[in-house]
Amino acid sequence: MAESTTESTGRNESEGGKLGSGPGRVLVWFYGVFTVAAASRSIVQMIQDFGKAPLAYVLSAVAAVVYGFITFSLVRGGERLRRTALVCCAAELVFVLTVGTWTLADKSAFPDATVWSDYGAGYLLIPVILPVLGMLWLRRNRAAA
């Protein structure tokens, strides 16, 4: 079956949904939920008492941006976004492991929790599992993007 290219996007019509289809839909859902959760958490915390734990609140905002970009990449598809999302998932895992270890080693460093505190224990450890699953899915679908 021949694939056609849309003039508005320059992408194959079948290209967009492959990363976000099948098991990818579950990833899209989780990343979408975590985008909203991290953004909401950081916005409320920054408005209420930014001075209490600015690093924690900024890290939650960074998490929201990373989650949002990965969500967009999975929905939109395409090889360039797939590769960029793969890098974002790897960076997300590094952040989760770094912040998780830091919060366990020095509780005083974070007067308030972030999405990535204690490896995401406040979110059922999903923040440490999600980037691994994301990287596996993105690598598996490199030809499908």
Rank of each mutant, 00 (worst) to 15 (best):
E13S: 13
L136N: 03
V65H: 08
A38G: 06
A56S: 15
I43N: 04
L133M: 08
I47P: 04
R142K: 15
I70N: 12
L138D: 10
L74I: 07
A145D: 03
V132L: 14
I43S: 12
A90F: 00
G22R: 13
A143D: 13
R11Y: 13
V115W: 00
D106M: 02
V128R: 04
F72V: 10
S4C: 06
R80N: 15
F72C: 07
V62E: 11
L74M: 06
V33A: 14
V87E: 09
S8F: 03
R140N: 14
R139L: 14
R142V: 13
V87H: 03
F72E: 07
D106K: 01
G16H: 06
K107N: 07
C89A: 14
F110V: 05
R76C: 09
G51F: 01
A91R: 00
L138W: 00
T103P: 04
V96H: 06
V115S: 12
L81Q: 08
S4H: 10
G32H: 03
D112I: 07
L138G: 06
A2H: 02
R140H: 14
Y119T: 05
I129L: 04
Y31D: 12
G134R: 02
V75A: 13
D118M: 04
L130S: 06
L138V: 07
P127K: 11
W137T: 15
G77T: 07
V128P: 00
P23W: 08
E79V: 12
S8Y: 03
F72A: 15
L136Y: 02
D118K: 03
T5W: 00
K107A: 11
G77M: 04
A63T: 14
A63M: 01
L133V: 14
L74T: 06
W137D: 15
G134P: 00
K107P: 05
P131M: 05
L104Q: 08
R140E: 09
S21P: 02
A91N: 01
R41F: 09
W116N: 11
I43R: 05
K18E: 15
L93D: 02
Y31W: 06
I47N: 14
R80C: 09
V36H: 08
G78D: 09
P131T: 11
A91G: 07
D112G: 10
L125A: 13
R11P: 02
S117A: 13
R140Q: 12
T6G: 13
T35P: 11
T98L: 09
F34Q: 04
V36T: 15
I70Y: 01
F69C: 11
P127R: 09
V33Q: 12
L55V: 15
D118E: 09
S117V: 13
A63Q: 01
L59S: 14
P127A: 08
R80S: 14
A64E: 07
K52Y: 06
A91V: 13
D112F: 00
V132K: 05
V75I: 13
A91F: 08
S117M: 05
L124N: 14
V36C: 03
G20V: 05
A121K: 10
G22W: 00
F34A: 06
F69P: 02
P23Y: 10
M46I: 08
D112K: 12
I129P: 02
G68R: 04
L74F: 08
E7C: 04
W102A: 09
P111N: 12
T114H: 08
A90W: 00
A37C: 05
V62P: 08
T101D: 00
G32T: 01
L55A: 15
